[in-house]
Every structure is written in structure tokens, then in C-alpha cells.
Simulated assay, not measured.
Amino acid sequence: MRTILSPTDFSLCARYATDAAAQLARRLDAQLHLLHCMNLPDGWDDWSEQQRSMRPDIQQMVANAQLQLQDLSNAYPNLEVKATVCSGALPKSVAEYVEHAAADLVVMGSHGASGKNEYFIGSNTQKVVREVHCPVLVVKEPLEHINFDKVVFASSFHQKEREAFLKFKEFVKPFVPEIHLVEIHTSSFFDPPYILSRQAMEEFRGLCAPFRCETHVFRNFSVDRGVRAFAEKIGAGLIGISNHHRHPLRRMLSGSNVEALVNHSDIPVLSVDYMDEIDTPAPIERKQQQLSF
């Protein structure tokens, strides 16, 4: 892991995430990138100095943001930090930055969302989880010392989720963790037979070596509540979940377990995406507009 990206709006919640990102960067010998997105006029990056001089209010906003980023960078001595102010919507800007900088991990804070917003609008963090195709760690509480020595990976344990689990294992490897594999049954018609769930998890147990691993089938009214209840029960420091990028209409009608966890879990959540071949989108070229210093 070489590059860790932490988007920030300078809120307290975002600072928790940036502090966690800095801890991880030190531990993993990675570079920390800070990104602040602003609503700037279209084409601002291409405006001439004369054009910009006619908008001193925008110039002052950008200057203030750069100063805040510089102060934030100075809070992490002995760490290589790159700070950028960009224009545009946060989720799209983060996705473009991840691709441009080949970021290995995004660390974000979350205020969560509630009610209809979870399905129709969602928080910026939800949207980043939805759009970014690299692991996203969501932090809601301050983490004085990151020590993911007991972790949960929640999944349906299909073979197509194997790669996502291996990415999760690679992330937690430096902490020499105790790994708990859990599948949540909700007493619905679509729950697989108990014995098949156990068999699927046994295959993933073999991938956990050399770390200690335990497998569980846990029952609850919903996957989101079940994962959170199980993680709290065993005192886990991190929840990992494979994130299937679903069609927007399907997500709106049935919800997303990953996005629900992002909104509701006080325990850090690491979302690791996987995509079926039929879901893989065609490459889209995007132009990133940014102001670096």
C-alpha cells in the first residue's frame, strides 16, 4: 500500500478519518493524500488571471482552503503529505483522483444519513463507496491507536467474493489479526441452507492462514443489524464487507447492506468492491480539475 487518500471538509468527523489515515500511512509506510472539494465556477482552472481577478470572493475561498489544508498537513510531521484543492462534486472528484493517483485506499469520515435519504440521496460517503473501485475505510469515531487485531468479514462467501476477501486479508495482515467470518441469516426465503453456508465459509477459512480464523452463522432481522450486533458481541475493531456494485434501481428498491453499515456502524467499516463481468462498465475518460500546492 503506497497511497492513502483522505477527503476532507475540515469537519470534526473528517478529522477523525484523516487522523486514522495518517496512522495507517505511518504504519504501512505510505504517502498520505488530502483532498478538499469546492464548488467552483465551471472551467475555473482554465480561467486567466484577469478573469479570476474579477472574482475575488472565489480566490479568497480557494486561498482559505489551501491554508486549511496546509495547517492539516503540518499536523502530521515526519509523514509525506500531498494536499489538493479540487473543483466538482465530491464522489466524482474522489473517483477521478483515485484513478489519477492510483490510490490504494480511501479513508473517510461519515455523518451518516437517515430515512429516505439512504435510498434516494445518501451521504457523500455512501456515494463514494458506491462509485470508487478501491477499498474504502469509513471511520466515525476517533481512533487513538489503530489496532485491528480482531476483525469481522461479513459475506455470502460466493467464489466471486474471493478476491475481495483476499484484499481484506492483505489490508489487515500487518495487525496479525484474529479473523471472524460471518454470514447473516435473516429467516427469509432466500437464506441458503445452514450446511451450505458452513461449507462455503470453510473454503474461505482456508484462505485465512496463517491467521486464526473462526466461522459463524448469525441470525438477525437484517444483514446490517446482524453484522453490527455480531461485531459488537465479539469486540471487533473492524468490519470488512464485500461490496457488489448493484444497478441503481435495484439498490433503491432493496437497499445496500454496505451503505447501511456505513451509515449505522460505529465500528470502522472497510468496503472492498467486486463486480460481476456483466456489471463491468466500459472505461470512461474524465478530466480532473484541481488546484495543487
Rank of each mutant, 00 (worst) to 15 (best):
L5E: 04
S6M: 00
C13Y: 04
Y16T: 05
A20F: 12
A22H: 00
L24H: 04
L24Q: 06
L28K: 11
D29I: 05
L32D: 00
L32Y: 00
H33V: 13
L35N: 11
P41R: 09
W44I: 11
W44V: 07
D45E: 14
E49M: 10
Q51H: 06
Q51T: 12
S53L: 10
D57G: 03
Q59D: 15
Q60M: 10
Q60F: 03
M61E: 15
M61N: 09
V62D: 00
N64F: 03
N64C: 04
Q66I: 04
L67I: 06
L69N: 13
D71P: 00
L72H: 06
Y76H: 08
A83D: 09
T84H: 07
T84V: 15
C86A: 15
C86H: 06
C86M: 09
G88K: 10
S93D: 08
V94A: 05
V94P: 15
V94S: 08
A95N: 11
A95E: 10
H100Y: 06
A101E: 14
A102C: 10
A102W: 01
A103F: 02
D104W: 02
V107A: 02
M108H: 07
S110K: 06
H111Y: 03
G115T: 06
K116D: 05
E118L: 13
F120C: 08
G122A: 07
G122D: 10
S123Q: 03
S123I: 02
S123D: 07
S123P: 04
N124S: 07
K127A: 11
V129A: 14
R130P: 00
P135D: 09
P135W: 07
P135L: 08
V136P: 08
V138N: 02
K140S: 10
E144G: 05
I146T: 01
K150Q: 15
S155N: 02
S156P: 00
F157V: 10
F157Q: 07
H158V: 06
R162T: 12
F165D: 10
K169H: 14
K169S: 14
K169D: 12
K173Q: 14
P174Y: 04
F175Q: 01
E178K: 07
E183F: 10
P192L: 08
Y194W: 08
Q199F: 10
Q199R: 06
F204S: 02
C208A: 15
A209V: 11
T215M: 12
V217F: 13
F218D: 03
V223H: 09
D224N: 13
G226H: 06
A229R: 11
F230G: 01
E232F: 03
K233N: 14
I234L: 14
I239M: 09
G240L: 01
G240V: 00
I241V: 15
I241L: 12
S242A: 15
S242P: 00
H247T: 09
R251L: 11
L253V: 07
S256M: 11
S256F: 05
N257F: 01
S265G: 07
I267F: 05
S271P: 05
E277T: 08
D279Y: 08
T280I: 11
A282N: 11
Q288P: 06
Q288W: 04
Q290N: 13
S292G: 09
F293G: 15
F293I: 13
